Simulated assay, not measured.
Amino acid sequence: AGVRVCASSDAPITEPDWRQGVASMMLRESKAGGRPSGPEQCVPLADALRAYTATAAWQDFADDWKGTIEPGKAADLCVLDRPLLDLDPHEITEARVDLTIFDGRVVFER
């Protein structure tokens, strides 16, 4: 329908972990029983990541300086220990952050 979907955590009710949110968007499974809830609402990885990055920046009226990786924008990103494209969505939460860059500087390195 052309609606831009933004995602975030429900912290402090849930863990503020984007990996959990992305996996949930892709799987739409109940944590209690593992049954799909609205399987027709599952989204692909690229759409789930966009909901946490580019669309979130757009919602903040900040997409001119953050939300995507390109010259002139804030260099806020993390590097994972494996490519998400190759993972079963159930394994996304197991991917570990190797490096975090904030404002162009390394602020975490495993």
Rank of each mutant, 00 (worst) to 15 (best):
L87P: 05
A48Q: 03
S8C: 11
M25P: 03
D103I: 08
R19M: 06
S9G: 08
Q41P: 05
T14W: 05
E29P: 13
V97H: 05
A95I: 11
P16R: 07
C78D: 06
S8V: 01
T68H: 08
K31D: 15
P83R: 15
P89Y: 00
D63T: 00
E70W: 01
G104D: 10
G38E: 07
G21W: 11
E94Y: 02
D76Y: 14
T93E: 05
E94K: 12
R28A: 01
C6L: 05
W58M: 02
T68K: 04
R96D: 08
G34N: 08
D76A: 09
E15V: 04
F61H: 11
W18V: 15
L99H: 03
F108N: 03
T100P: 07
L99D: 01
A48E: 06
A62K: 09
T68D: 04
D60F: 11
F61W: 12
A57R: 04
E109F: 06
D98I: 10
G34I: 15
D88H: 15
L45W: 07
R35H: 13
A23E: 07
R110Q: 11
D10S: 14
I101T: 02
R96K: 12
I13E: 03
Y52F: 11
D10K: 12
D86T: 14
P36W: 08
A62Q: 08
D10P: 05
G72M: 00
L80E: 03
A74L: 10
T55K: 09
D64Q: 13
A7N: 08
S9W: 01
D81E: 02
P71C: 03
A74R: 14
E109V: 01
W58T: 10
V97R: 05
L77P: 00
D60E: 14
A7D: 04
K73H: 13
R4T: 06
L49A: 05
K73S: 02
I13H: 06
D88K: 02
R35N: 08
A7I: 11
S8E: 07
T68C: 03
E109W: 02
P16A: 15
M25S: 08
L77R: 04
Y52M: 03
D63S: 11
P71E: 04
T68L: 04
G33L: 02
C78S: 08
T53L: 01
S37N: 13
V97L: 00
D64Y: 13
D64K: 12
I92P: 12
G21Y: 15
F102I: 14
A51S: 07
L27K: 03
V107G: 00
C78M: 12
A46P: 02
L49F: 03
R35E: 11
V106M: 12
E15Q: 07
D81P: 06
A7T: 07
E40T: 09
R82L: 01
G2D: 01
E94Q: 15
A11I: 08
R110W: 02
I92D: 04
D98F: 04
G38I: 01
K31M: 13
D10V: 13
G21C: 05
T55G: 01
E70F: 02
T55L: 01
I101N: 07
G34A: 10
P16K: 11
G21Q: 06
D103Q: 15
T55P: 10
G104S: 07
A75F: 10
V22T: 06
Q41A: 15
